[in-house]
């Protein structure tokens, strides 16, 4: 940047000690968690950033083996969306409360927002982008279109990944069972009954999905 460093744009000459000397006069409680401040005071960040910023990660995503280097704090969801441009997996809450980020890891449905990418070294991840075989849609994708199992489409990837797993797990025995075992996937548009219809149909087809 050509402009003069102004307030708010970092200058390398700033001393961390300035920060350490600050005794924050806060009315109310500090927004910054104490532990995070402690971390900054101890200069963990800088030390760690230098020493161990990224670690190697070998992971198979949609059948493609990837050798990556990632920070341990990167969630599987953020790795997919922000580093691999696999944006089909959605972020709806980031706290494991909505299911939009559902992917399969080693064949099991999990929430990619609540797991660190580095925890999946050597594992196989399938996202919505990896469900169809080329141009041929997965039967669940077909059924979602046919039964209009979505509106805005934002929860859809998670619903579909979860729905496939729901059948594979043997939890699609009845509409009631489907509703219970799909309850980890929120849909604010409220397409739930259509999603259930789609799952029932795919289950009835009896195909090996």
């Amino acid at each position: 940047m050509s402009q003069k460093p102004s307030k708010g744009i970092p200058s390398p000459r700033d001393s961390r000690r300035d920060f350490l000397k600050q005794s924050a006069v806060l009315t109310g409680i500090a927004l910054t968690p104490k532990a995070a401040i402690t971390a900054a005071e101890n200069q963990w960040d800088e030390k760690l950033a230098d020493a161990i910023e990224k670690i190697p990660l070998n992971i198979e995503i949609n059948g493609i083996q990837k050798s990556l280097s990632v920070e341990p704090r990167v969630t599987l969801l953020d790795l997919l969306r922000e580093q691999l441009n696999l944006t089909g997996t959605k972020k709806g809450c980031d706290y494991g409360q909505c299911g939009a980020c559902t992917v399969h890891v080693n064949g099991k449905r999990v929430l990619s927002c609540l797991t660190l990418a580095v925890m999946h070294d050597g594992e196989k991840v399938t996202t919505i982008e990896g469900l169809a075989k080329g141009d041929e849609l997965h039967p669940m994708q077909e059924a979602f279109i046919k039964h209009d199992g979505f509106q805005c489409g934002y929860c859809t990837s998670g619903q579909i990944m979860s729905a496939v797993a729901c059948i594979r797990e043997g939890h699609a025995g009845s509409e009631t069972e489907i509703r219970e075992f799909m309850s980890g996937n929120l849909c604010r548009c409220g397409a739930y009954p259509n999603i259930v219809d789609a799952i029932v149909e795919v289950k009835k087809q009896g195909k090996n999905i």
């Binding site: 494991g96 299911g99 559902t102 099991k108 449905r109 999990v110 929430l111 609540l114 797991t115 979860s162 797993a165 729901c166 797990e169 939890h171 075992f181 799909m182 309850s183 980890g184 996937n185």
Partner: peptide, 9 residues
């Protein structure tokens, strides 16, 4: 408890 996905984790 929780959801099918979380129980898988």
């Amino acid at each position: 408890g929780a959801s099918a996905q979380i129980r898988n984790m």
